[in-house]
Protein backbone atom coordinates (compact mmCIF):
# COMPACT_ATOMS: atom_id res chain seq x y z
CA UNK A 1 0.00 0.00 0.00
CA UNK A 2 1.23 3.49 -0.78
CA UNK A 3 2.20 6.06 1.83
CA UNK A 4 -0.46 8.66 2.62
CA UNK A 5 1.22 10.72 5.31
CA UNK A 6 4.88 10.96 6.15
CA UNK A 7 6.69 12.90 8.85
CA UNK A 8 10.42 13.47 8.56
CA UNK A 9 12.42 14.42 11.62
CA UNK A 10 9.64 16.53 13.06
CA UNK A 11 10.45 18.93 15.92
CA UNK A 12 8.07 21.14 17.81
CA UNK A 13 9.20 23.33 20.68
CA UNK A 14 7.56 26.16 22.56
CA UNK A 15 9.34 29.10 24.14
CA UNK A 16 8.19 29.58 27.72
CA UNK A 17 10.07 32.82 28.40
CA UNK A 18 13.10 33.28 30.62
CA UNK A 19 15.08 31.23 28.14
CA UNK A 20 13.18 28.01 28.87
CA UNK A 21 12.12 25.87 25.93
CA UNK A 22 9.58 23.05 26.05
CA UNK A 23 10.45 20.31 23.58
CA UNK A 24 7.02 18.85 22.91
CA UNK A 25 8.06 16.73 19.93
CA UNK A 26 11.68 15.95 19.11
CA UNK A 27 12.91 14.13 16.05
CA UNK A 28 9.84 12.12 15.11
CA UNK A 29 9.71 10.32 11.77
CA UNK A 30 6.78 8.11 10.83
CA UNK A 31 4.59 6.95 7.97
CA UNK A 32 0.90 6.23 7.65
CA UNK A 33 -0.17 4.16 4.67
CA UNK A 34 -3.51 4.53 2.93
CA UNK A 35 -6.32 3.00 4.96
CA UNK A 36 -4.02 2.16 7.85
CA UNK A 37 -4.68 2.90 11.53
CA UNK A 38 -1.74 4.13 13.58
CA UNK A 39 -1.97 4.77 17.32
CA UNK A 40 0.16 7.24 19.23
CA UNK A 41 0.25 6.19 22.89
CA UNK A 42 1.95 7.56 25.95
CA UNK A 43 1.36 9.32 29.22
CA UNK A 44 0.32 12.96 29.57
CA UNK A 45 3.00 15.34 28.37
CA UNK A 46 4.65 12.86 26.02
CA UNK A 47 3.80 15.03 23.02
CA UNK A 48 1.29 12.73 21.36
CA UNK A 49 -1.41 15.40 20.98
CA UNK A 50 1.05 18.00 19.71
CA UNK A 51 2.38 15.49 17.21
CA UNK A 52 -1.17 14.73 16.04
CA UNK A 53 -1.94 18.40 15.51
CA UNK A 54 1.36 18.99 13.72
CA UNK A 55 0.76 16.07 11.37
CA UNK A 56 -2.42 17.59 9.97
CA UNK A 57 -1.16 21.13 9.86
CA UNK A 58 -3.10 22.58 12.80
CA UNK A 59 0.27 23.43 14.36
CA UNK A 60 3.38 24.36 12.39
CA UNK A 61 6.49 22.29 13.21
CA UNK A 62 9.61 24.11 14.43
CA UNK A 63 11.59 22.04 11.96
CA UNK A 64 11.16 18.91 9.87
CA UNK A 65 8.67 18.09 7.14
CA UNK A 66 5.19 16.65 6.81
CA UNK A 67 4.26 15.16 3.45
CA UNK A 68 0.71 14.27 2.50
CA UNK A 69 0.29 12.13 -0.59
CA UNK A 70 3.88 12.93 -1.55
CA UNK A 71 3.59 16.71 -1.30
CA UNK A 72 4.93 18.85 1.52
CA UNK A 73 2.20 20.49 3.57
CA UNK A 74 4.26 21.80 6.48
CA UNK A 75 4.95 25.50 6.21
CA UNK A 76 1.93 26.19 4.00
CA UNK A 77 -0.12 29.30 4.69
CA UNK A 78 -3.70 28.89 5.91
CA UNK A 79 -4.92 29.71 2.44
CA UNK A 80 -2.65 27.25 0.68
CA UNK A 81 -3.60 24.66 3.27
CA UNK A 82 -7.33 24.92 2.57
CA UNK A 83 -7.62 22.33 -0.23
CA UNK A 84 -5.72 19.86 1.96
CA UNK A 85 -8.01 20.40 4.94
CA UNK A 86 -10.85 18.55 3.26
CA UNK A 87 -8.62 15.49 2.95
CA UNK A 88 -7.68 15.24 6.64
CA UNK A 89 -9.92 15.88 9.60
CA UNK A 90 -9.67 15.84 13.36
CA UNK A 91 -12.01 14.28 15.98
CA UNK A 92 -11.63 15.77 19.44
CA UNK A 93 -12.10 14.29 22.88
CA UNK A 94 -14.58 16.81 24.24
CA UNK A 95 -17.54 16.04 22.07
CA UNK A 96 -19.73 18.70 23.66
CA UNK A 97 -17.52 21.60 22.59
CA UNK A 98 -17.38 20.78 18.90
CA UNK A 99 -20.93 21.78 18.01
CA UNK A 100 -22.54 25.20 18.17
CA UNK A 101 -25.21 24.80 20.88
CA UNK A 102 -27.61 27.22 19.14
CA UNK A 103 -27.73 25.42 15.81
CA UNK A 104 -29.30 22.12 14.91
CA UNK A 105 -26.83 19.31 14.30
CA UNK A 106 -28.04 19.14 10.70
CA UNK A 107 -27.00 22.76 10.13
CA UNK A 108 -23.66 22.15 11.80
CA UNK A 109 -23.02 19.08 9.68
CA UNK A 110 -23.94 20.97 6.52
CA UNK A 111 -21.59 23.84 7.25
CA UNK A 112 -18.31 22.32 6.01
CA UNK A 113 -20.14 21.10 2.89
CA UNK A 114 -21.34 24.61 2.12
CA UNK A 115 -17.93 26.15 2.80
CA UNK A 116 -16.35 23.78 0.31
CA UNK A 117 -19.27 24.36 -2.12
CA UNK A 118 -20.38 20.76 -2.34
CA UNK A 119 -23.66 19.80 -3.99
CA UNK A 120 -26.46 17.67 -2.59
CA UNK A 121 -25.93 18.86 0.97
CA UNK A 122 -29.19 17.43 2.29
CA UNK A 123 -28.57 13.95 0.94
CA UNK A 124 -24.99 14.01 2.18
CA UNK A 125 -26.07 14.94 5.75
CA UNK A 126 -28.56 12.07 5.74
CA UNK A 127 -25.88 9.70 4.46
CA UNK A 128 -23.41 10.84 7.16
CA UNK A 129 -25.91 10.29 9.97
CA UNK A 130 -26.59 6.86 8.58
CA UNK A 131 -22.88 6.04 8.46
CA UNK A 132 -22.38 6.84 12.15
CA UNK A 133 -25.45 4.87 13.19
CA UNK A 134 -27.87 7.69 13.93
CA UNK A 135 -31.34 8.05 12.50
CA UNK A 136 -31.80 10.74 9.85
CA UNK A 137 -34.54 12.35 11.89
CA UNK A 138 -32.07 13.69 14.48
CA UNK A 139 -30.81 16.36 12.06
CA UNK A 140 -33.33 18.85 13.42
CA UNK A 141 -32.27 18.47 17.05
CA UNK A 142 -29.83 20.53 19.10
CA UNK A 143 -26.54 19.24 20.55
CA UNK A 144 -27.71 19.25 24.18
CA UNK A 145 -30.42 16.72 23.33
CA UNK A 146 -27.81 14.02 22.73
CA UNK A 147 -25.95 11.78 25.14
CA UNK A 148 -22.14 11.71 25.24
CA UNK A 149 -21.90 8.68 22.97
CA UNK A 150 -24.33 10.12 20.43
CA UNK A 151 -22.46 13.41 20.43
CA UNK A 152 -19.24 11.56 19.69
CA UNK A 153 -21.02 9.89 16.75
CA UNK A 154 -22.04 13.33 15.48
CA UNK A 155 -18.50 14.51 15.94
CA UNK A 156 -17.27 11.68 13.76
CA UNK A 157 -19.96 12.48 11.20
CA UNK A 158 -18.74 16.08 11.06
CA UNK A 159 -15.18 14.91 10.50
CA UNK A 160 -16.34 12.57 7.71
CA UNK A 161 -18.43 15.22 5.93
CA UNK A 162 -15.90 16.12 3.25
CA UNK A 163 -14.83 12.52 2.64
CA UNK A 164 -11.34 12.76 4.19
CA UNK A 165 -8.62 10.21 3.52
CA UNK A 166 -7.19 10.62 7.03
CA UNK A 167 -8.83 11.06 10.42
CA UNK A 168 -6.84 12.13 13.47
CA UNK A 169 -8.77 11.25 16.63
CA UNK A 170 -7.46 12.66 19.93
CA UNK A 171 -8.67 10.46 22.83
CA UNK A 172 -11.89 9.68 20.94
CA UNK A 173 -13.35 7.37 23.59
CA UNK A 174 -11.67 8.31 26.87
CA UNK A 175 -14.52 10.54 28.05
CA UNK A 176 -17.08 7.79 27.48
CA UNK A 177 -18.39 5.05 29.73
CA UNK A 178 -17.19 1.51 29.02
CA UNK A 179 -20.38 0.29 27.39
CA UNK A 180 -20.59 3.35 25.12
CA UNK A 181 -16.86 3.26 24.48
CA UNK A 182 -17.22 -0.22 22.97
CA UNK A 183 -19.87 1.11 20.57
CA UNK A 184 -17.59 3.90 19.33
CA UNK A 185 -14.59 1.57 19.04
CA UNK A 186 -16.71 -0.67 16.81
CA UNK A 187 -17.93 2.31 14.82
CA UNK A 188 -14.36 3.28 13.93
CA UNK A 189 -13.74 -0.31 12.83
CA UNK A 190 -16.83 -0.25 10.60
CA UNK A 191 -15.94 3.10 9.06
CA UNK A 192 -12.42 2.00 8.26
CA UNK A 193 -13.77 -1.12 6.60
CA UNK A 194 -16.46 0.64 4.57
CA UNK A 195 -14.71 3.93 3.68
CA UNK A 196 -11.07 2.85 3.68
CA UNK A 197 -10.13 5.96 5.67
CA UNK A 198 -6.73 6.02 7.36
CA UNK A 199 -6.72 6.89 11.06
CA UNK A 200 -4.31 8.20 13.64
CA UNK A 201 -5.60 7.47 17.15
CA UNK A 202 -4.09 9.39 20.03
CA UNK A 203 -4.76 7.62 23.31
CA UNK A 204 -3.38 6.71 26.69
CA UNK A 205 -5.50 3.55 26.93
CA UNK A 206 -3.55 0.53 25.71
CA UNK A 207 -6.47 -1.87 25.58
CA UNK A 208 -8.50 0.52 23.42
CA UNK A 209 -5.51 1.08 21.16
CA UNK A 210 -4.91 -2.65 20.79
CA UNK A 211 -8.48 -3.01 19.59
CA UNK A 212 -8.42 -0.08 17.17
CA UNK A 213 -4.98 0.20 15.60
CA UNK A 214 -2.90 -1.77 13.08
CA UNK A 215 0.33 -0.16 14.22
CA UNK A 216 1.36 1.44 17.49
CA UNK A 217 3.95 4.13 18.21
CA UNK A 218 4.81 4.48 21.90
CA UNK A 219 6.00 7.96 22.87
CA UNK A 220 7.96 9.12 25.88
CA UNK A 221 8.96 12.76 26.41
CA UNK A 222 8.48 13.84 22.81
CA UNK A 223 10.10 10.90 21.02
CA UNK A 224 8.95 7.54 19.70
CA UNK A 225 10.59 4.78 21.76
CA UNK A 226 8.98 1.82 20.04
CA UNK A 227 6.93 1.38 16.90
CA UNK A 228 5.49 -1.61 15.13
CA UNK A 229 2.56 -3.91 14.54
CA UNK A 230 0.04 -3.33 17.32
CA UNK A 231 -0.40 -6.89 18.52
CA UNK A 232 3.34 -7.59 18.37
CA UNK A 233 4.29 -4.50 20.32
CA UNK A 234 1.73 -5.08 23.05
CA UNK A 235 2.14 -8.84 23.32
CA UNK A 236 5.97 -8.78 23.26
CA UNK A 237 7.16 -5.27 24.12
CA UNK A 238 10.82 -4.64 23.28
CA UNK A 239 11.29 -1.30 25.02
CA UNK A 240 11.30 -1.31 28.84
CA UNK A 241 8.95 1.68 28.86
CA UNK A 242 6.36 -0.13 26.73
CA UNK A 243 6.59 -3.05 29.14
CA UNK A 244 6.21 -0.76 32.15
CA UNK A 245 3.14 0.89 30.60
CA UNK A 246 1.58 -2.51 29.96
CA UNK A 247 2.42 -3.75 33.44
CA UNK A 248 0.84 -0.70 35.03
CA UNK A 249 -2.56 -1.30 33.45
CA UNK A 250 -4.70 -2.79 36.20
CA UNK A 251 -6.26 -6.02 34.91
CA UNK A 252 -8.89 -8.25 36.40
CA UNK A 253 -6.84 -11.40 35.90
CA UNK A 254 -3.40 -10.78 37.40
CA UNK A 255 -1.78 -8.93 40.27
CA UNK A 256 -0.08 -5.62 39.64
CA UNK A 257 3.73 -5.98 39.34
CA UNK A 258 5.79 -3.41 41.27
CA UNK A 259 5.10 -0.12 39.48
CA UNK A 260 7.63 2.28 37.97
CA UNK A 261 8.84 4.79 40.50
CA UNK A 262 8.53 8.54 40.18
CA UNK A 263 6.74 10.74 37.67
CA UNK A 264 7.45 11.59 34.06
CA UNK A 265 10.27 14.20 34.04
CA UNK A 266 9.50 17.69 32.79
CA UNK A 267 9.86 18.14 29.01
CA UNK A 268 11.43 21.53 29.73
CA UNK A 269 14.70 19.95 30.84
CA UNK A 270 14.54 16.28 29.86
CA UNK A 271 17.17 13.83 31.17
CA UNK A 272 20.39 13.32 29.24
CA UNK A 273 21.04 10.25 27.13
CA UNK A 274 18.05 7.94 26.92
CA UNK A 275 15.18 10.00 28.29
CA UNK A 276 13.75 7.00 30.07
CA UNK A 277 16.92 6.07 31.94
CA UNK A 278 15.86 7.87 35.17
CA UNK A 279 12.95 5.47 35.62
CA UNK A 280 14.17 2.46 33.68
CA UNK A 281 14.50 -0.75 35.73
CA UNK A 282 17.31 -2.09 33.52
CA UNK A 283 19.27 1.12 32.88
CA UNK A 284 23.05 0.84 32.43
CA UNK A 285 25.68 3.61 32.73
CA UNK A 286 25.70 3.97 28.94
CA UNK A 287 22.00 4.97 28.94
CA UNK A 288 22.70 8.16 30.86
CA UNK A 289 25.11 9.49 28.29
CA UNK A 290 24.26 8.08 24.90
CA UNK A 291 20.87 8.63 23.35
CA UNK A 292 19.57 5.52 21.55
CA UNK A 293 18.08 5.98 18.07
CA UNK A 294 15.07 4.20 16.63
CA UNK A 295 16.40 1.03 14.94
CA UNK A 296 14.71 -1.86 13.18
CA UNK A 297 14.55 -4.98 15.34
CA UNK A 298 12.74 -7.52 13.21
CA UNK A 299 9.03 -8.11 12.53
CA UNK A 300 8.88 -4.62 10.99
CA UNK A 301 9.41 -3.16 14.41
CA UNK A 302 11.62 -0.27 15.50
CA UNK A 303 12.99 0.27 19.02
CA UNK A 304 15.02 3.07 20.55
CA UNK A 305 16.87 1.20 23.30
CA UNK A 306 20.45 0.09 23.87
CA UNK A 307 19.27 -3.07 25.62
CA UNK A 308 15.92 -4.09 24.10
CA UNK A 309 14.01 -6.83 25.90
Amino acid sequence: MSVLLEARNLEKSYRLGRGRVLHAVSGVSLQVRKGEALALVGESGCGKSTLGRTLIGLTQPTSGKVLFDGQEISGLSDRAMRPWRARMQMVFQDSSAAFNPRRTVGESLAEPLRIHRRHGVRERVAELLDQVGLSQSVAGRFPHEFSGGQRQRLNIARALALGPELLVADEPVSALDVSVQAQIVNLFGDLRASLGVACIFISHDLSVVRQMADRIAVMYLGSIVEEGNGLNVLDRPAHPYTKALLDAVPRPDRALPPPLQGDVPSPVNPPSGCRFHTRCPIAQPRCATERPVLQPSGEGRQVACHYPL
Binding site: V178, S179, G189, V208, Q211
Partner: peptide, 24 residues
Protein backbone atom coordinates in the same frame (compact mmCIF):
# COMPACT_ATOMS: atom_id res chain seq x y z
CA UNK B 1 -21.94 -7.10 29.51
CA UNK B 2 -19.75 -4.52 31.25
CA UNK B 3 -16.88 -6.97 31.60
CA UNK B 4 -17.25 -8.14 28.01
CA UNK B 5 -17.15 -4.57 26.67
CA UNK B 6 -13.58 -3.99 27.93
CA UNK B 7 -11.17 -4.56 25.03
CA UNK B 8 -8.74 -7.36 26.02
CA UNK B 9 -5.03 -6.62 26.46
CA UNK B 10 -3.90 -10.10 25.50
CA UNK B 11 -5.07 -13.11 23.57
CA UNK B 12 -6.77 -12.91 20.18
CA UNK B 13 -8.24 -9.58 19.18
CA UNK B 14 -12.00 -9.82 18.65
CA UNK B 15 -13.38 -8.59 15.33
CA UNK B 16 -15.96 -6.49 17.19
CA UNK B 17 -16.43 -5.74 20.87
CA UNK B 18 -19.66 -6.96 22.45
CA UNK B 19 -21.72 -3.86 23.30
CA UNK B 20 -24.76 -2.98 25.34
CA UNK B 21 -27.27 -1.36 23.04
CA UNK B 22 -28.79 1.98 23.94
CA UNK B 23 -28.05 4.36 26.80
CA UNK B 24 -28.59 4.17 30.58
Amino acid sequence: ALLAAIPPLDGPRPERLPTISGQP
